[in-house]
């Protein structure tokens, strides 16, 4: 074992200190918006605005209370909105993982005529911004058949507006997720499939027993990249959900922007709805970093 001379050791220590200082500086920089949000949620509107010009904006000084949080509950059914967002997001992420991974598997592993064209079409869907197709989609979903329980009898009707499924189903199939899965699956050697086929496994067994267990990073990446837009949905539910009891959290943001904006309550509300996202991110931090590194995808 080589003995390092004290000068080199000191140099290495200095470098480490400097790198930590830079990292701490960056961490503080990125934490500022969150700190501002939380601290402002404890202040009255006038104080938030008057503190904006200096460091007091980031410190819990002055008239500090939980009044804004109480105000949020008076104005918005926040519990209901959170529950709705959890239902919609979990459904989109869960169903999306199954559907998109199966589609990716079919494109990358199965040999069938036209799969190249299908993959091109799937990729082409990424070019079209959602805003351009939102209104035609509203028309389509308003014409879709649905079953309803009425007077103890199952009846049918038309129109998916004002429902959970209208917030979930259009977002399960996702071109980017299909593309990402297909790319990741294509890195798994096909020899494994051939061996499994010889052992009598069908395609679904190969997908479920071999490909899925080997594709953890791809599933983690898709789950995270699907979670955020699903949680942040605003335009679509604004257009298709009329019943307040079915609205997700982001639509609730607009409740605070009246003739005058209740900034303290806005900050309290955003603190409350950011918390689940932070918890998910912090809980899955390792998986997120490793999956991004493994799949080579940036969010």
């Amino acid at each position: 074992m080589a003995v390092r001379d004290p000068g080199e050791r000191l140099l290495r220590r200095r470098r480490r200190v400097w790198s930590y200082l830079v990292l701490v500086g960056l961490a503080v920089f990125f934490l500022f918006p969150l700190v501002f949000m939380f601290v402002s949620s404890l202040k009255p509107d006038g104080q938030i605005l008057s503190d904006l010009g200096g460091w007091r904006a980031f410190l819990p000084l002055g008239d500090i209370s939980l009044r804004n949080y109480a105000g949020v509950f008076d104005r918005v059914p926040v519990g209901r909105f959170l529950l709705n967002s959890v239902i919609v997001t979990v459904a989109i992420v869960g169903a999306g993982l199954v559907v998109n991974s199966m589609a990716g598997f079919a494109i990358s592993r199965l040999r069938w005529t036209g799969r190249g064209v299908v993959l091109s079409v799937v990729i082409a869907t990424l070019i079209v911004p959602f805003e351009t197709i939102a209104v035609p989609m509203v028309y389509w979903v308003s014409q879709l058949p649905t079953l309803v329980l009425q007077h103890g009898q199952i009846e049918y009707d038309f129109g998916w507006l004002d429902s959970y499924q209208v917030q979930i189903v259009p977002f399960i199939a996702n071109g980017f997720s299909v593309f990402l899965f297909s790319q990741y699956f294509s890195t798994i050697p096909t020899a494994i499939d051939e061996a499994a086929r010889i052992d009598g496994a069908g395609w679904f067994t190969i997908y479920r027993r071999i490909v899925v267990p080997l594709s953890g990073p791809a599933f983690a990446t898709v789950a995270i990249l699907t979670f955020l837009p699903a949680w942040n949905q605003y335009l679509w539910p604004s257009m298709v959900v009329q019943d307040e009891s079915l609205r997700p959290v982001m639509v609730g943001m607009q409740y605070f922007f009246q003739d005058n904006t209740a900034w303290g309550e806005v900050m309290a509300y955003t603190s409350m709805i950011t918390l689940p996202v932070l918890v998910v991110f912090l809980g899955c931090q390792r998986a997120f970093v490793s999956s991004v590194a493994a799949s080579g995808v940036k969010g």
Binding site: V138, S142, G159, L161, M239, Q242, V251, Q254, Y255, F257
Partner: peptide, 17 residues
């Protein structure tokens, strides 16, 4: 909410709802 009200009206009109 006021901010998304016109979007809701436009969408509902398109869907005849």
């Amino acid at each position: 909410p006021q901010g998304s009200y016109n979007d809701a009206i436009t969408a509902a009109a398109a869907a005849h709802k």
